[in-house]
């Protein structure tokens, strides 16, 4: 979703970074965080709907922020041992390399360029970002093919432009693109009826629908134009830190799979219904020692932020204004793409 100009800038900054010695210590991120007793995580320069927002009192909330809290709790035992550093899209990669932040949790797509040339290491995807179509309900369209010849509002200079062109081209559907620079312009154009459909990132479409003068006038089609797996990124060469992040995401999913919630985690820990739940919550030691953390890290984390489903519902799902369906972000057993690693 990054603009071309800012990405060019980020590229220039990173070219400078590659030619210069990387100063931030790699390989010891967890120790650095523990010594500092605080995790430096990404925020946003403004708000990013549902993922990193600022509430009335200037406190950060949102899906990405909850994962920052989860990671802080896993490593340091408390969600308050966290500093959210506001960074723009363009700034996130150089900021990670220079050590301004410890980790990028900022709806960041796992791409080959970032994984290799930019010197990042991605942990397993924690969110599957779909590109969808929002359309006027009165058109009665149920798929992109029904919108043949229609006008599509598209955010200029973003990857959405290419995704729509590729998808529609492959299916042989003709359409007329109407490009806008700012999200506000896109929305007003849609509300004013200048376009038949708006293509974009799922959560953005959910917010656009929510803010419409009458939300029932608009529907989000189930059709997925493209998927972007969003991963948590750290500096290359720190296997232990990546392990911690992978198991953090996995523990949140495992908690949901086994019905462990913020509310019943104490009970579950006292009487684990199965041995794997006992291991997860630290009733049986092992989950912490092997990562260099305390054995109750997963318990603390679930106690602080809940399981994956609870985080989702609270920030972008049913419990939030966006009401974004779980869709592909559900567990595999419920038709989604998320699964847990095996805790042996």
């Amino acid at each position: 979703m990054m603009k071309r100009f800012t990405s060019a800038l980020a590229g220039a900054a990173l070219a400078a970074a590659v030619s210069a010695p990387v100063l931030a210590a790699s390989g010891e991120t967890v120790k650095t965080i523990q010594d500092r007793d605080s995790l430096l995580c990404t925020g946003h320069n403004g708000s990013y709907l549902g993922f990193a927002e600022v509430d009335d009192k200037g406190k950060w909330t949102g899906f990405d922020i909850e994962f920052c809290k989860a990671l802080a709790t896993a490593i340091l035992g408390s969600p308050d041992k966290l500093q959210i550093i506001p960074v723009s899209w363009a700034q996130r990669f150089p900021a990670l390399q220079s050590g301004d932040i410890d980790v990028i949790i900022k709806v960041t797509g796992w791409t080959m360029g970032r994984d290799t040339e930019l010197g990042l290491q991605f942990a397993r995807p924690y969110f599957i970002g779909p590109t969808n179509i929002l359309t006027r309900a009165e058109l009665g369209a149920t798929s992109a093919a029904d919108l043949e010849g229609g006008v599509f509002c598209i955010n200029a200079g973003t990857s959405i432009e290419r995704i729509v062109a590729d998808y529609m081209g492959a299916k042989g559907i003709s359409y007329e693109a109407l490009n806008f620079e700012k999200a506000e312009e896109l929305r007003s154009a849609l509300y004013a009826g200048r376009c038949d459909a708006l293509a974009g990132f799922g959560p953005f479409l959910a917010a656009t629908r929510f803010n419409a003068p009458n939300p029932d006038d608009f529907v989000i089609l189930d059709e997925v134009l493209a998927l972007e797996p969003e991963g948590i990124a750290a500096r290359q060469g720190d296997d232990n830190f990546i392990d911690v992040i992978n198991w953090m995401v996995s523990a949140l999913l495992m908690a949901e799979e086994h019905g462990i919630t913020q509310a019943n985690v104490d009970e579950m820990r006292a009487n684990p219904p199965s041995s794997s739940i006992g291991r997860l919550l630290g009733a049986t030691p092992g989950i912490g020692d092997r990562l260099g953390l305390s054995n109750d890290w997963a318990y603390n984390m679930i106690k602080a932020v809940g399981n994956y489903g609870e985080i989702y519902d609270r920030t972008v799902g049913e419990g939030s204004p966006y009401k974004l369906p779980r869709g592909l972000n559900n567990l595999w057993s419920k038709g989604g793409l998320h699964y847990t690693l095996v805790l042996d």
Partner: peptide, 25 residues
């Protein structure tokens, strides 16, 4: 704002960047 400082324009964007107030830009 582009380098992550929360001056008045960034905080204004933060103020409308939520589902609740998104239409009041």
């Amino acid at each position: 704002t582009i380098i992550g400082f929360f001056e008045i324009m960034a905080s204004a964007n933060a103020a409308v960047g939520t589902g609740e107030w998104g239409a009041q830009y």
